[in-house]
Amino acid sequence: MTLVTERPEPERPGLRQIAYAVGEPATTHATLAATDYHVRTGEAVAAELSRLGRHDRPDVIVGHIGWGGLLFARDAMPGVPLIGYCEYFYNAVGSDLDFDASAVVADAERRRIRMRNAAQLVTLETLDLAYAPTRWQRQQYPRAVRERIAVCHDGVDIAACRPDAEAAFILPDGRVLRAGDPVVTFAARDLDPYRGYPQFMRAAARVARQRPDAVFVAVGGDGPGYGRPRPDGRLWREVMLAETGLAERIVHIPWLAHAELVRLFQVSAAHVYLSVPFVLSWSLLEAMACGCLIAGSATPPVQEVVKHGVNGLLAPFFDEEALASRILAGLAAGAGLTGLRQEARRSVARGYEREACVDRQLGFVMQLAAEEDFVPA
Rank of each mutant, 00 (worst) to 15 (best):
T5F: 03
P10D: 08
E11D: 15
Q17W: 02
Y20C: 01
P25W: 12
T31Q: 13
P58W: 03
L70R: 00
C86S: 02
F89S: 07
D96G: 12
D98S: 00
F99G: 11
A119W: 07
L124F: 12
A132L: 02
P133D: 02
Q140M: 05
P142L: 02
R143P: 10
R146N: 01
A160D: 10
R162Y: 03
A165Q: 08
F169M: 00
L171V: 13
R175W: 03
R175Q: 13
V176Y: 10
D192C: 09
A204N: 12
R206C: 14
A208F: 03
A214V: 06
A214N: 03
A218H: 13
G220C: 08
G223Q: 06
G225C: 12
P231C: 08
W236Q: 10
V251R: 11
W255D: 11
E260Y: 03
L261F: 07
F265K: 03
Q266R: 06
A269M: 00
A270I: 02
Y273R: 10
S275P: 10
V276L: 15
V276Y: 12
S281N: 08
S283I: 14
E286W: 09
G312F: 09
F318Y: 15
E320K: 04
E320M: 02
L323R: 04
I327K: 05
S347K: 08
Y352G: 07
E353N: 06
R354Q: 15
G363K: 03
M366Y: 13
L368S: 01
A370P: 10
D373M: 06
P376W: 03
